[in-house]
Simulated assay, not measured.
Amino acid sequence: MTGDKPLKILIAADTYPPDVNGASVFCHRLATAMAARGHEVHVVAARASKGPGYVEQRPEATVHRLASHAVPTHPSYRIVFPWDAARDLARIIDDVRPDAVHVQCHYMVGQAAVNQAVKRGIRTIATNHFMPENLDPFLPFPRWFKRIVARNSWRDMGKIMGRADVVTTPTPLAARAMKLHARLDEVLPLSNGIDSSHYELAPGEEVVKDPWPLVLFVGRLAVEKNVDVLLESLTRMKTEPAPHLEVIGGGEQRANLERRAAELGIADRVAFRGHVDDDELRRAYLRADVFCQPGTAELQSLVTLEALSASRPVVLADAMALPHLVDDGGNGYLFTPGDAEDLAGKIDRVLAASDEERAAMGEAGHRKAVFHSAEKTMNTFEALYRGATAQDVLGA
């Protein structure tokens, strides 16, 4: 698959819009970028509601929706039964006859796609966006049993993704974890990428600021995001006037978090916006004085890259991949995960800085975001589809 001829690319994903999560956003951006380069893109993903499978024509791709089933422990996630996924992926791959298949995780849809693509000798790329431990909040089992589930999931990841021609994941930390726990010999760290220019202030553009300091959180409202710690920190901040918090995103924890804000007496300082469109999200980044990500299960954190692209100082949990996005004291600060007092102090430190100092922090963050260029990421994936190896990419 050399040269410049357009390719047929099939992206197999367990989650895709209208799902809202990092993997879903990445898959949509990947499909959009490849379509813009003239390739024919097909996406296979679970249907977001009850009903039979169907084919959806979207601007970025032909999306093949598979019949799916609700999960009792999660309000929105849906699964495709393995036997259905195997049958449907075999049929779709035979109909589409892709040049490359790109799977996005090793569960249901991803596993079926790897099996069917390898069986037919089709170039296969596997990208992992997920740590098995991310399942913990949704498994109603004791801790010892969850450890067994995680161990088995890591083992399955190695067996399934190890059959692909190239395995990637967004960060070096995740690559090391996959080598250690999934026994994968070669994992290519490849950023999800970000178009930093989209979040920059346009010439002549003005942002209307609130009369109080504004802290921003963006993300799915799930247990592992630890937004409750952020709410608690709001009560401990010393900054005057008292900072407000804007929360963008939805999820199973929203009602609990709204209740907790009321219990803490800060409901009038916390705005739960739910899901917003891309333009409003961009304005929220530019309106904020500091961005906070208290989550402890981030493989890369696209929302943090977006905040850095908007030149916002950041305060992030010292966990998983987040430390890779902060030069402590340069473009923001790390705080001890779960420690509301430490988080409050770090946000206070950002807000106490002069306008010039905060601007310098924002510029440092923007430089870091530019390093994660979407163009570079998409160039690399396109090269992998055409036959490049991980070593080719690392040596480029």
Rank of each mutant, 00 (worst) to 15 (best):
S197A: 13
F291M: 08
D339P: 03
R29H: 12
Y16I: 05
E205H: 07
P72I: 09
T169P: 02
D88R: 11
R143M: 10
R312G: 01
T380C: 06
F291H: 14
E341V: 08
E40N: 12
P243H: 13
A321D: 09
W83P: 00
A359H: 07
G362H: 08
T2V: 03
F335V: 09
L173Y: 09
F371D: 12
K179P: 02
A319H: 10
S311I: 00
G250E: 08
D279Y: 01
H102M: 05
P241N: 11
L188D: 13
D94K: 05
A353C: 14
E341R: 14
P140Q: 11
A388W: 12
K179F: 01
P72T: 11
E133R: 13
H372Y: 06
A288T: 00
D19C: 08
E206G: 04
S301D: 12
R87E: 13
P213T: 10
V247S: 11
E298T: 13
R358S: 07
D318P: 00
H366V: 03
D327Y: 03
M34E: 13
M1G: 10
E40G: 09
G387N: 07
M237R: 13
V166Y: 05
A307K: 10
L316W: 11
A352F: 01
L190H: 04
V20F: 07
H39P: 04
A86I: 05
R358Y: 11
